[in-house]
Amino acid sequence: MNQTITVNRDLKADLKEQANRFRQRMSDQGTLVVNLVSSPGAGKTSLLQRTATKIGDEYRLAVLVGDLATDRDAERLKPYVPVQQLTTGGACHLEIPLVESGYERLNQSDLDILFIENVGNLVCPASHDLGEYLRVTLLSVTEGDDKPGKYPKMFRTSQAMVITKSDLLPYVPFDVSSAVEDARRIQPELDFLTTSSQTLAGVDEWCEFLVRQLRKIQK
């Protein structure tokens, strides 16, 4: 006779609990955690450089930067903001244990905003809670305005979308309103902003958006 053991357990229960504990701890200490996700090359690092230049004196920022290989993004960010590299060793996404150990290495408990620059990938990072308060998807105009519908989980689980490289809009067939419409069919409450890290258009609004979110935590 075989024996059936009823389990009914979420396969990711431990990771989800760890993520919830981290989120609570960060909120309690007044740190806004922002998980930045996008395709490779959408401009996460550039936007973070601009953000640090803009509000890095006024607010205490730090970045955990995830990559499969190399510390190129971390090196790019170092002149602007405290940064810790998270190397996934080939994995296509970050998981909470890696994030939490990177956070401990930062050794800064007084942060206002902790950015997590996820691995460039619109698929797998959607399924991994990193204990963030805010998930922001970047979509660069060269990727095409049809992407939200093609990566529904990423947009469904995000609270905001930043359309990047807006300086290239005159040269590419990207319709901002149809991208937003497509995304809001999946996530009706999605906030959206448009930025260019080259001309700095929209960077002020992005920073104001972050500060508004920070105030919700530090009320």
């Binding site: 006779m1 075989n2 024996q3 059936t4 053991i5 009823t6 389990v7 009914n8 357990r9 979420d10 396969l11 990711k12």
Partner: peptide
């Protein structure tokens, strides 16, 4: 959105 182990069957 679940990914759940429902049960497992073990040989006696």
């Amino acid at each position: 959105d679940e990914l759940t182990i429902i049960d497992i069957e073990l040989r006696e």
